[in-house]
Design a protein around this nucleic acid. Structure first.
Length: 293
DNA sequence: ACTGTCACCTGAGGGC
DNA sequence: TGCCCTCAGGTGACAG
C-alpha cells in the first residue's frame, strides 16, 4: 500500500501520541512479519520514552531514549490504528474492540499518552526492527537509499546524474529506491503523466552527454514535488488498505490522472487521449500514449 | 555493476 | 453460493 505520502500521513497521525510518551507495554503477537522479530525486540521497547518520530523514504523511525531506533515498514498492507485503551482491562493487558481482521493485528503498543497503537498487516510484507542509532549507517535496510524526493538535495541535476547511462526505463528507475527513495507505483505513474513523459522512455535521456539535466529532468522533478505534496495534503491515497491512524480515508485517489483509470479519458486539458495499461517489470503501468512522450 | 524476475502472503473481485 | 483465477501502495534474494 503505502508510498511516501501514506507513510508521512501515518507519521503525522502517530506523532501526537508517541512523541514524548513512554511505551508502557509492547507486544508482538507472532514470531515474524516479513522477517523474524529480533529475540530482544520487545525488551528493547518496553519502558522506553519515544523522543521523536521521523520518516526516511517509506520507513518510520521512532527514536528511543535508550539510543535505539525503532524502524518500521508498512510493506504493502500495513496500517496503524490509534485507539483508546479499555479501562476495564487489567493493567498491561491489551483489550480493545476487535475488528473482523484483528487476526492481523500483529504489534501492539500501550503509550503513556493514553493511547493504544495497533499495527495491522494482513500480507505481512511489513517489518519492524530495533537498531542502535550509532549503527544506522551500517543498517543494510537503509544503506543505499537514494535522496528524499522532497529534500533539498534532490533536484534535476541529481536525478540526471543518477539516470545518466541507465539503459532501463524511466518507470523502473523511479521505482528504484537507490535513485530516489519513497516513490512507488502510484506516484511514479502520476509524476510521469504530469510531466508528459513516457514510462517507456530510457532513463539516460534525462541527462545530456555531459551529464547535465535536460528539460525533461526538470519537468519530472517538478511533477514529483507537486504530486507528493498534494498527496500528503490529501492524507494519502486509499485504494484498499490505507487509513489514516484515526481510521479516516485519504482522498488523493480522487486526484489520480492515470493510476487505476485504464480505458478512461486522459485528464490532461485538451488531450482527449485514452489511459492505457501495460506491465513493466512485473508492475502495472498506467499512462496516456497521446500526451506522454 | 546493472537489469529483470520471482517469492513472500492474504484478501478482494470477477467470471463461470 | 462456491471455486478458480488474477491482481494489489514493496522489496530482498537471485539469475543472467
Amino acid at each position: 500500500m503505502p508510498e511516501l505520502p501514506e507513510v508521512e500521513t501515518v507519521r503525522r497521525g502517530l506523532q501526537p501520541v508517541m512523541e514524548g510518551a513512554r511505551i508502557l507495554n509492547a507486544e508482538a503477537r507472532r514470531a515474524d512479519l516479513r522477517f523474524p522479530f529480533q529475540p530482544d525486540f520487545v525488551a528493547r521497547l518496553q519502558g522506553q520514552i519515544v523522543t521523536g518520530l521521523g520518516r526516511r523514504a517509506k520507513y518510520l523511525m521512532a527514536d528511543l531514549a535508550s539510543g535505539d531506533v525503532l524502524l518500521m515498514h508498512l510493506g504493502m498492507s500495513g496500517s496503524f490504528r490509534v485507539i483508546k485503551p479499555d479501562n476495564e482491562a487489567a493493567p498491561g493487558e491489551f483489550h480493545y474492540p476487535r475488528g473482523k481482521d484483528s487476526t492481523h493485528d500483529h504489534v501492539l503498543f500501550r503509550m503513556s499518552s493514553g493511547a493504544d497503537i495497533v499495527f495491522n498487516d494482513p500480507r505481512r510484507f511489513g517489518y519492524m526492527k530495533v537498531i542502535a542509532r550509532n549503527a544506522l549507517d551500517e543498517e543494510p535496510l537503509l544503506r543505499g537509499l537514494g535522496p528524499e524526493p522532497l529534500g533539498n538535495e534532490f533536484d534535476a541535476a541529481m536525478l540526471a546524474r543518477s539516470c545518466a547511462g541507465k539503459t532501463t526505463s524511466l518507470k523502473a528507475s523511479l521505482l528504484d529506491q537507490r535513485v530516489v527513495a519513497g516513490l512507488g507505483n502510484i506516484y511514479v505513474c502520476e509524476a510521469l503523466h504530469r510531466s508528459h513523459l513516457s514510462p517507456r522512455r530510457i532513463a539516460a535521456t534525462l541527462a545530456t552527454k555531459k551529464g547535465e539535466p535536460t528539460d525533461h529532468a526538470k519537468r519530472l522533478v517538478g511533477a514529483i514535488h507537486t504530486v507528493l505534496n498534494d498527496a500528503i495534503k490529501a492524507g494519502g491515497s486509499s485504494l484498499r488498505d490505507h487509513r489514516q491512524t484515526s481510521g479516516e480515508l485519504g482522498y488523493f485517489q480522487h486526484s489520480f490522472k492515470v493510476y487505476d483509470r485504464e480505458g478512461e479519458t486522459c485528464k490532461t486539458p485538451g488531450c482527449g487521449g485514452t489511459v492505457k495499461r501495460f506491465t513493466q517489470n512485473g508492475r502495472s503501468t498506467f499512462w496516456c500514449p497521446k500526451c506522454q512522450k
